[in-house]
Amino acid sequence: MEFRLRPLSSAPPTPLTAQDIRELVEQILGIDALPPIVQAGHPVLRQHAAPYDGQLDDSTLLRLIEVMRRTMHDAPGVGLAAPQIGIPLQLAVLEDQFDVDPAASAARERAPLDFFAMLNPVYAPAGSETASFYEGCLSIRGYQAVVTRHRKVALDYVRPDGSSAHAELSGWQARIAQHETDHLHGALYLDRAETRSLACNEEYSARWAQPGTGQARAELGFPAG
């Protein structure tokens, strides 16, 4: 049977106007520190972010992207969506240059991902294959859970310079793109997760950090994706 992602509840649109968003961005850019990453329970994470349509001038947009990149590195993480720093705008940054265990890297198809920023991203499955792995989020600090996602996706987005872009992604790169795009639509990874797999970071590291999820499935009692 063809796999379909677990349906998500519709998220309400952000109530902020373009002017509100500009003022919020200027406030964040005006502080002499990296912005905090908001945590689950903050309403911005449960709102459909505003599509980017020129709310920021080019210079401000690039400054915001650089702050998001630094915040992602500092966390550290492999992706960060604007709502995660409180800005309800369809913008995310992605980069994965972590040196991970070769066995885990092979099992998860985790290849290095060069930095890029995407505006108004949309993804679609490229084929019917899926993959299930533990996944975490900078906005749900301290926990991980197994999420089944499309193994390959076609990603369309707008670059910061306004040009259209298309990418065919697979493995962990596809997972990152799906995770960050979901953020922009008011969804968290827990909405798609096998909740019986939920583990705090300490238990995950001690018990479930193998390349695959077979042992966790057997002992925690959740189905294969």
Rank of each mutant, 00 (worst) to 15 (best):
12 P>K: 14
13 P>V: 12
13 P>G: 09
14 T>D: 05
15 P>C: 01
16 L>F: 06
17 T>Q: 02
18 A>K: 14
18 A>D: 15
18 A>L: 09
21 I>V: 12
22 R>P: 01
22 R>L: 11
24 L>F: 05
25 V>T: 03
27 Q>C: 00
31 I>Y: 02
33 A>T: 08
33 A>W: 04
34 L>Q: 06
37 I>K: 07
38 V>F: 12
40 A>G: 14
45 L>E: 01
46 R>L: 06
47 Q>V: 06
48 H>F: 14
48 H>P: 11
50 A>S: 15
53 D>A: 15
60 T>Q: 03
65 I>D: 04
67 V>W: 05
68 M>G: 07
77 G>S: 13
77 G>M: 09
78 V>F: 06
79 G>V: 08
81 A>L: 12
83 P>I: 05
84 Q>H: 10
86 G>E: 02
86 G>N: 10
87 I>R: 02
88 P>D: 03
88 P>A: 12
95 E>S: 10
95 E>M: 09
95 E>D: 11
96 D>Y: 11
96 D>M: 05
97 Q>A: 13
98 F>T: 10
98 F>L: 07
98 F>E: 10
99 D>R: 14
101 D>T: 03
102 P>N: 08
103 A>C: 00
104 A>D: 01
107 A>I: 00
108 R>N: 02
110 R>C: 04
110 R>E: 03
111 A>E: 15
114 D>E: 15
114 D>I: 07
116 F>I: 04
118 M>T: 01
120 N>D: 13
120 N>T: 09
123 Y>F: 15
124 A>M: 03
127 G>R: 00
127 G>C: 00
133 F>N: 05
135 E>Y: 10
136 G>K: 07
140 I>K: 06
140 I>F: 13
140 I>P: 07
141 R>F: 12
142 G>M: 05
143 Y>Q: 14
145 A>V: 11
145 A>F: 09
145 A>C: 11
146 V>S: 10
155 L>H: 05
156 D>N: 11
157 Y>Q: 03
159 R>W: 01
162 G>K: 03
168 E>D: 10
170 S>H: 07
170 S>C: 04
172 W>Q: 02
172 W>F: 14
173 Q>G: 15
174 A>R: 01
177 A>F: 00
178 Q>M: 11
180 E>V: 03
180 E>G: 05
180 E>K: 06
182 D>L: 07
183 H>M: 15
186 G>A: 13
188 L>F: 10
191 D>K: 13
192 R>D: 11
192 R>C: 14
193 A>N: 14
194 E>T: 09
195 T>S: 15
197 S>W: 11
202 E>T: 03
204 Y>E: 04
205 S>W: 01
205 S>A: 12
206 A>N: 01
206 A>R: 08
210 Q>H: 06
211 P>T: 00
213 T>C: 13
213 T>D: 15
214 G>V: 09
214 G>H: 12
217 R>V: 05
218 A>N: 12
219 E>H: 11
220 L>N: 10
221 G>F: 10
221 G>Q: 13
225 G>V: 05
225 G>N: 10
